[in-house]
Structure formats: structure tokens, C-alpha cells
């Protein structure tokens, strides 16, 4: 890839900043990651396919990527609202809520897993009344729409099943969306909204035509980061997932499993597949963002 500058800019420091960025990136990320690739390349094709495409591994990809996507989507929506409320409105306890947003970063993932399990397990604070509701809901759904195995999809309980995975992944992804949106909202120029209002736009039009396009790149970034983080998450999920093979077993757990059996190559092979998948998805999202910025700027 060529990092040639496309057009001359008057601003200085391109060479220095890009040079430093690339050097630091290579030393800390690219060279170490290439160690994983090289280790995985020692395998024959058959070996590789067996490691990365056995039924259990495939089932874990579906779960990991599917639930991560769902969790990131929920985070993008609700996290967007949280960020908006935090920046624009004042209400009692606003600062406390603001501080709370960082919790998923500060709390070690294992502690988060334990705490979430304690809350959502059948005997937990919330689980004791939410869990029966969930089970009832799933049962009713199975009666109403019998062609789908709802229990397999939605789980037979909240903790120690698929909903638990979703809760953990939503928890760890939330700050990404809020904290990416917040600075952009803070810097958002009120003049834009004022101009829109002066020109006769109503609140809804200002929202969708003026504010949302400004926020969109940051929202996409937040979504992408929350998704990427969720895909790799291990510590909090294993406590609450139940970890049943073919059902609620996540891919990072399978990597650990391989490592426990001294199968470095198998582990790195799965890691490489996840890396390539995440990289592709992130790249797509970044391209989309670039496109959206150009589109909205016109």
C-alpha cells in the first residue's frame, strides 16, 4: 500500500506524524500479530481447515458474530440516546450517569462477568423476576410461531445461555458508542441548528437533516468499535454464557481450549480467521464512513 499524499496541504507535520504512526503501529501491533500469522502458516491446508471449520468452531462463529452484531446495534441506538441526553440535557444525577459510562472499561472483564451473572441469574436481583418472564415469553413464541426452534435461538434462561452472552457484550460495548459520540456532540456548532431553524426547518427536520448527518460518522465508528470489541471478548462472557458446545460457546473460548491442549497452531489459526474477519468488517465500515462523510458534506 502506498501512503503517498494525494494533494498538497499547507499544514505541516505530515511526514513526522505519519512516520511516527507507522513505526509505532509496526512495532507494537503489526510485527507481533505477524507472529500469529507465521505460526498458523506452518499448518497444512487440511490441518488449517480442520482447525477453523469444524462444526463446533462454525457454530461458535455464528454465535459470536451474530450476538456481537446485535449487541453493537442495540448499543448504537441506546448509546446514541445516552450520549445525546448527557450532552444536551441537564437533569439531577447527570454527572453520575456520565461517570458511569466508563465503568465497563475500568471494571476487569472477569468482575463484570461475575457481577452480571449475580444480577441476571435465576436467584439474582433482576433474574428472579425477569428469568420466569423470559421463559414464558419464549414458550408463548414457540406456540405462536411453531416452525422455529425459539428455545434454541433465544435460550431457555437468561444467565448461562445466549441472552447472557448478549448482556455481557452489550455491557462491554456501550462506552465505545457514547464516548465516540460525546466529543462530536460537544463540538457540534449550535449555529447550524439555528440556521436550520431560521430557514424554517422544524425540530424533526433539523434532527434528521442537520444533526444526524453530522453525527453519523461518529455513530458508525462507535458501532464498529463496539462490534469489534465484542467479537474478541472473553473474560466477562465465560461467566454468564453457560459455554455449552454448539450452543452458547464463543470463539475466544475455543481459542483458549486449543491453547490448554498445547495446540498453539490450532489456536493461532482460529485467531487468524477472526482477525481477518474483523479486519474486513472494520475496513468496510471505515470505507462506508468515508463515503458517508463525502456524501453528506456536499
Amino acid at each position: 500500500m502506498a501512503f503517498a499524499r494525494r494533494q498538497r496541504s499547507v499544514l505541516p507535520g505530515f511526514g513526522l506524524s505519519l512516520g511516527f504512526t507507522l513505526a509505532y503501529l509496526s512495532l507494537l501491533v503489526l510485527i507481533p500479530l505477524s507472529a500469529a500469522f507465521i505460526r498458523a502458516m506452518g499448518m497444512s491446508w487440511d490441518e488449517f481447515m480442520q482447525a477453523v471449520a469444524s462444526p463446533r468452531v462454525l457454530a461458535s462463529y455464528r454465535l459470536t458474530f451474530g450476538v456481537s452484531f446485535l449487541a453493537a446495534l442495540v448499543n448504537a441506538f441506546f448509546g446514541g440516546i445516552v450520549a445525546w441526553v448527557l450532552v444536551r440535557y441537564s437533569f439531577p444525577g447527570r454527572k453520575i450517569v456520565d461517570a458511569l459510562v466508563d465503568l465497563p472499561f475500568a471494571l476487569p472483564t472477569a468482575v463484570a462477568g461475575i457481577a452480571l451473572t449475580a444480577i441476571y441469574a435465576k436467584n439474582g436481583w433482576v433474574g428472579q423476576w425477569l428469568d420466569p418472564l423470559w421463559v414464558q415469553g419464549v414458550t408463548k413464541l414457540s406456540v405462536a410461531i411453531p416452525f422455529v426452534d425459539w428455545k434454541a435461538w433465544l435460550g431457555g434462561s437468561i444467565a448461562f445461555d445466549r441472552p447472557g452472552v448478549f448482556i455481557a457484550l452489550t455491557f462491554i460495548g456501550l462506552p465505545f458508542v457514547v464516548r465516540t459520540l460525546q466529543p462530536v456532540l460537544e463540538e457540534l456548532q449550535p449555529e447550524l441548528e439555528e440556521a436550520a431553524a431560521t430557514l424554517g426547518a422544524n425540530r424533526w427536520q433539523t434532527m434528521t437533516r442537520v444533526i444526524f448527518p453530522e453525527l453519523f460518522p461518529a455513530l458508525i465508528t462507535g458501532f464498529a468499535l463496539a462490534f469489534a470489541r465484542a467479537v474478541g471478548e472473553y473474560g466477562s462472557v465465560v461467566f454468564i454464557a453457560g459455554n455449552r458446545p454448539m450452543h452458547s460457546e464463543i470463539t475466544p473460548l475455543l481459542i483458549i481450549t486449543k491453547l490448554e491442549q498445547y495446540d498453539y497452531r490450532g489456536a493461532t489459526a482460529i485467531a487468524v480467521v477472526m482477525l481477518v474477519a474483523s479486519f474486513t468488517l472494520l475496513l468496510l465500515i471505515n470505507l462506508l464512513q468515508k463515503w458517508s462523510r463525502r456524501y453528506y458534506r456536499i
Binding site: 503501529l25 501491533v29 468499535l225 475466544p252
Partner: peptide, 16 residues
Amino acid sequence: ILITLIDLPFAVSPVI
């Protein structure tokens, strides 16, 4: 590509 490479550590499982 550069932005995506910077994002990469988010996507790498902590174990890896």
C-alpha cells in the same frame, strides 16, 4: 487501511 489497522487491537481477542 491505516485507520482499520489502528482499530485492529480492539478486535483482537485479549487472549490473542
